[in-house]
């Protein structure tokens, strides 16, 4: 059974290029380990390791690790953003974060989006991917169309949806459309308290569905046709084939996709900020990141904001590590775990 892992590694490649923390370091170190066995000198091997991993390491350390360390340090101070850090407050900022109910509210919204994104996007993307995996007319065009929302910047999408859903009394295109087709009774203040979080979920699903579909399609390409042909000869129905062959062999792809989706949902910020702005906290769509901006930057409490950032980082890290340890382990064995 070497094929599933082939599919898996092919699918796993794009996320690593995006630099999602732990994955990128392991990826780079795995390369020379395979090519260094041909009896080259130790010096040369070291040189290669340095040259190949150096740039990635510098970027990773400089733009990921160092800022986290600096942020953790700043989190110990009461700092208004000017001058040196002098007012040390110990763990007060961190304790305040963990005591603030607004933070838990924001965390709750993140978790809601994490869970619901998996539940909504997963099955939906899988069905569409199965459809698009069939040979049919206009398949490429459909694939491109479904991928378009993912390509457009979140800021632009945010502005677009804000105009469609409408703000304030004037409402947007959607309410006008409902009115004009005789469904005026369905009009609603979509971005207000109550419906806001569902609207956010809907927009997230719409935007990231294409990404999931492309991942799943790539995974499906890696599944040899012989298997489903064999199943067909044995008399298995289409759905039975998908259930017993495609789905299990798509496992690595599904697990990587879920990982990226979880991390993305935990870091959700742009859409919320562009669509709701400061109203996010009043309409039930605040996220950890929007809370950080609101309680840190907007209030001029930079030390506190840094503490929020660190808490957010730790939550994401724990979730990411736990997921790698318990879910991704079988897919990444050998590439991420070797040498530990």
């Amino acid at each position: 059974m070497s094929h599933p892992s082939t599919g898996g590694s092919r699918v796993a490649a794009p996320p690593q290029r995006e630099g999602h923390g732990p994955a990128s370091g392991g990826d780079a170190s795995a390369l020379p380990a395979g090519s260094g066995r041909r009896g080259r000198t130790a010096w040369r091997q070291r040189f290669e390791i340095t040259v190949l991993t150096g740039p990635a390491l510098i970027v990773f350390l400089g733009f990921v690790i160092a800022p986290v360390i600096v942020a953790a340090y700043c989190g110990f101070f009461n700092w208004n953003g000017y001058g040196p850090l002098v007012k040390s407050v110990g763990f007060d900022n961190y304790i305040a974060v963990l005591k603030d109910k607004n933070f838990y509210e924001a965390l709750g919204h993140n978790i809601f989006i994490v869970v619901m994104s998996l539940l909504c996007q997963g099955p939906l993307a899988l069905l569409v991917a199965l459809l698009l995996n069939k040979k049919m007319k206009g398949r490429s065009a459909l694939r491109v169309l479904l991928f378009v929302p993912y390509v457009i910047s979140e800021a632009i999408i945010g502005v677009g949806w804000r105009l469609i859903l409408g703000t304030g009394q004037t409402g947007g295109a959607l309410n006008a459309l409902l009115d004009n087709i005789g469904l005026g009774w369905l009009q609603h203040y979509w971005l207000d308290n109550g419906s806001a979080i569902w609207v956010l979920l809907g927009i997230c699903t719409w935007k990231y569905l294409g990404y999931a579909i492309i991942l799943f399609l790539a995974g499906m390409q890696g599944i040899p046709e012989e298997l489903s042909e064999a199943a067909a000869i044995d008399g298995a129905s289409y759905w039975k084939t998908q259930w017993h062959i495609t789905l299990p062999l798509l496992g690595p792809t599904l697990r990587i996709w879920a990982f990226l989706s979880i991390i993305g949902s935990l870091q959700l910020f742009d859409l919320v900020y562009v669509i709701w702005g400061k109203a996010a906290q009043f309409t039930g769509v605040s996220t950890m990141a929007s809370y950080m901006v609101q309680s840190g930057r907007d209030m001029g409490r930079w030390g506190y904001g840094n503490a929020v950032a660190v808490v957010m980082f730790l939550i994401s890290l724990v979730i990411a590590l736990a997921y790698q340890r318990f879910v991704l382990r079988r897919d990444t064995e050998g590439s991420l775990t070797e040498g530990r």
């Binding site: 409408g166 703000t167 304030g168 009394q169 409402g171 203040y189 971005l191 207000d192 308290n193 709701w276 702005g277 109203a279 009043f282 309409t283």
Partner: peptide, 9 residues
């Protein structure tokens, strides 16, 4: 206040 004031800029 106007309806939907909370999302009004």
């Amino acid at each position: 206040f106007n309806d939907g004031w909370i999302t009004t800029s």
